[in-house]
Design a protein around this nucleic acid. Structure first.
Lengths: 142, 142, 142, 142
DNA sequence: GTGGTCTAGACCACA
DNA sequence: GTGGTCTAGACCACA
């Protein structure tokens, strides 16, 4: 599990962490019973304030994604997968809905939106633009 | 031109106004040379502080959407349409890209995303879902 | 005498008029005893509020550039030429000084400034860039 | 970094701050990654309202000169140097152009302008004019 | 009437 | 501690 954080963005750092963990659980990268990095460790790795990590972890406990292992750390709950998937789907639907609504209100026709969507989809799933070569032989070597 | 504002949302009021005007220009509801409501008038209409309106209008001047007519008010710039359209398209693309990226990173396949997108599209453009019946026969009955 | 006015600029309209008349007197386009357009006439020509013209003319009287011809209108004072020339030179010196000071404080060397100055000078006095053809045969024909 | 502000001038306070920071970046006194004084601190130092500082900083963020470090403060963007230099040069050229144009339209010959310019240049870069003696021997005597 | 600036002061999320 | 938002209210130049 690797986390990255952007202190300049408009999303709070603690929320970036929350989302990344939710997404990792939903995607199967983080499974039930697995431990997450300690507050101190992650704070050092990301070079940010430990309180910020703690805040993210607290929220994830409230959302029943993590649970404490008394004195040992935090683990992903066994029932977190379903919950995170549901949260992810709701979040995606809400985001799409908001974008589409805004666009529609401004007179963008459905077909234009569909085109824009497909373009972004293609870019993400088959990124043929050679900005970063990403030589498959080197993949995972770092 | 009607503006609405949600003082409880997480988007600042002044930015809601900025976006609505950008969108209205992009959509052709507000055209070059047309005056926008005066700071004081809009403040009364929306029941918010004039400074908040002024802040929105200042930002729209920085973005070259509005232009002052000294002592008379603010008008939409003649070249604002192209700029707002471009801004809108960029904004839509960026939003879609961000949603798709997040989803992809979490393992959601392209087809699932496409289905979610089409569902939201249908809901916005042909809202047949019976959450609010809005039976034409009942219209005006309340 | 032709006046032009830009209601969108950051210089107040009344001041634009004041400056143009001062400059016209200093340059000999407007000479002692000559009448300036009436407030009403100029207001119609420029499509602006008569009060704005009146304000400019009042200031020019205070600066002893114009004087009233009781009931007939305003004329340029016989002694206005020297005064306007002096005002013009002071104004030019002050503007140059302010630009140079700002630049110097930010570390721009004198030679760079001299180059920029000569470039602008050339552009104004021998505008060889063919943005507007300005066919010499048509010059003054309009 | 020292800032000074003139609350009586015709340039708004917040804009004086904006310019000083732009100029400081362009001149290399403020470099990428460096923090600017906090809103509250600068407000105390200059004895002006924090809102006014905040307004200046907001504008500098819009101009991509500053960048927020969430919860910690504001830093100069890495790419701000080039941007500020360009802005400075454009601003100098525009000011010179406007002065020269006004003068030319009023019949001032190029050579007179060149003389005025050189005089101001000399005054700024080798201020030998004895308005303020500033005898080094007297330095620190006050 | 118009917008622009500034102050004073409160409240908020964030780190 | 940090910046961001909003209100209330004053004052100004301008048309």
């Amino acid at each position: 599990m690797f986390f990255t954080v952007d202190p300049g963005g408009d999303v709070p750092i603690y929320e970036q962490i929350v989302r990344q963990i939710q997404m990792a659980v939903a995607g199967g990268l983080l499974t039930g019973g697995q431990m997450v990095p300690s507050v101190r460790q992650l704070a050092v790795d990301l070079a940010i304030n430990p309180n910020t990590i703690a805040k993210a972890y607290t929220q994830l406990q409230n959302e029943k994604v993590l649970e404490p292992l008394r004195g040992r750390g935090l683990i992903v709950r066994r029932d977190a997968l379903a919950r995170c998937k549901k949260a992810r789907d709701r979040s995606i639907a809400a985001s799409l809905s908001s974008v589409i609504d805004d666009a529609a209100r401004s007179g963008v026709p459905a077909d234009d939106l569909r085109q824009l969507f497909e373009a972004q989809l293609a870019e993400t799933f088959s990124p043929s633009d050679p900005i970063e070569p990403s030589d498959p032989l080197e993949n995972g070597a770092s």
